[in-house]
């Protein structure tokens, strides 16, 4: 045992290297795709902008008209799409891996609904709009997550119980959202409804607060995320490997809940981005996904969906959440059809 045959060591290093190389290649390709879609969404629109003009504008050498369209209209929207996508992608993957259940993403088990209730309550009761909504969304997400965790607790938390309790809580909270909407002025309700479908339109002032929150949360997610490799093997194995499973799980979920709350506050509950990012990343990397590919998939899905929402139907703009919902819902149905009780694929 003390020394392995050198060719065995080499073949292990090669096998590991191939896996790592695949993750790197997938991440690089995803990053390029995000960049391409980002650029495309800056160029395409009622006022088309060429690549040359775009670069000139981004390097502060543009004409006032181009500058206005790029810096005021399109750039904040594209930036927000990337930030929201990364936040949801990370949050969803962390939830799914910690809970070991593909159904347990924050948008399915009610954490995003909790954020919605928090924000809608502020809109309906206090007439708040803009970045202060983040406080309500964050508080709603945290309270809901805590409630789900406690309700699912029975000498520890298992994946399918957390998912079931979460789905129930989500249904209840959606009822609360409807209650608020029916009890308020039509104009306020319309604003709330638009926010609820997940929209990136006219949210420029949300970019800075979200970026600030993510500057703290994203590094925390990646640092804590290293213990996911142990947590995925079950609590006993994780503790055997020296990971304090319960404490680490709570810390990871806290970060994921905060990411969900912050992103929901900025763009509304963009449906299913958190839910699909991890599984897509897992398919691409062929194996347990790292957080980086999942975050990039989240960004790509959101930027692409927002681009489609703006340009797919000529003359009619839909919100980004409608597009992601249309893509995500069939996936949810498929997963429910093929998953067993524990939520694993049969």
């Amino acid at each position: 045992m003390t020394c392995a045959p050198p060719d065995a060591v080499r073949s292990v290093a090669r096998a590991r290297g191939r896996g790592a190389a695949r993750v790197r290649a997938v991440s690089a390709a995803l990053a390029l795709a995000v960049l391409a879609m980002f650029t495309l969404s800056l160029c395409v629109g009622d006022y088309p902008i060429g690549l040359g003009d775009l670069i000139a504008s981004l390097t502060a050498r543009g004409t006032p008209a181009v500058d206005y369209v790029v810096h005021r209209l399109r750039l904040p929207r594209a930036e927000l799409a990337v930030l929201v996508g990364v936040a949801f992608g990370l949050a969803g993957t962390i939830f799914q891996q910690v809970v070991r259940n593909p159904l347990a993403s924050p948008d399915v088990i009610g954490v995003a609904s909790g954020a919605s209730v928090g924000a809608i309550a502020l809109i309906a009761l206090a007439g708040v709009s803009g970045p202060p909504l983040a406080a309500g969304a964050l508080a709603g997400a945290l309270l809901t997550a805590a409630a789900i965790y406690l309700l699912a607790w029975r000498r520890g938390v298992t994946g399918h119980r957390l998912a079931l309790v979460g789905v129930g809580v989500a249904a209840g909270l959606n009822g609360v959202v409807s209650f608020f909407l029916t009890r308020t002025d039509v104009k306020v309700a319309a604003e709330g409804l638009l926010w609820l479908t997940g929209s990136l339109y006219g949210r420029a002032d949300h970019v800075a607060p979200l970026a600030a929150a993510m500057a703290v949360l994203v590094p925390a997610a990646f640092l804590l995320g290293r213990s996911l490799r142990a947590l995925q093997l079950g609590d006993d194995s994780a503790r055997g490997l020296g990971v304090d499973a319960e404490r680490r799980r709570r810390a990871l979920l806290l970060v994921a809940v905060a990411l969900t709350g912050a992103a929901t506050a900025a763009a509304g509950p963009v449906a299913f981005v958190a839910f699909v990012s991890g599984p897509i990343a897992a398919r691409l990397t062929r194996g347990a996904p790292g957080l980086l590919p999942a975050a990039l998939v989240g960004a790509l899905v959101t930027v692409t969906a927002d681009f489609a929402a703006q340009h797919l139907i000529p003359g009619a703009q839909v919100t980004v959440g409608v597009v992601t919902g249309a893509v995500g819902a069939p996936y949810l149905l498929w997963l429910l059809a093929v998953a067993d009780r524990g939520g694993r694929r049969r």
């Binding site: 292990v12 096998a15 590991r16 896996g19 891996q97 070991r100 995925q232 093997l233 079950g234 006993d236 194995s237 897992a282 062929r286 194996g287 347990a288 694993r344 694929r345």
Partner: peptide, 12 residues
Amino acid sequence: SPIAPEGITVVD
């Protein structure tokens, strides 16, 4: 009964 994450390779 340890749990192997879906799709994980032996070396991983």
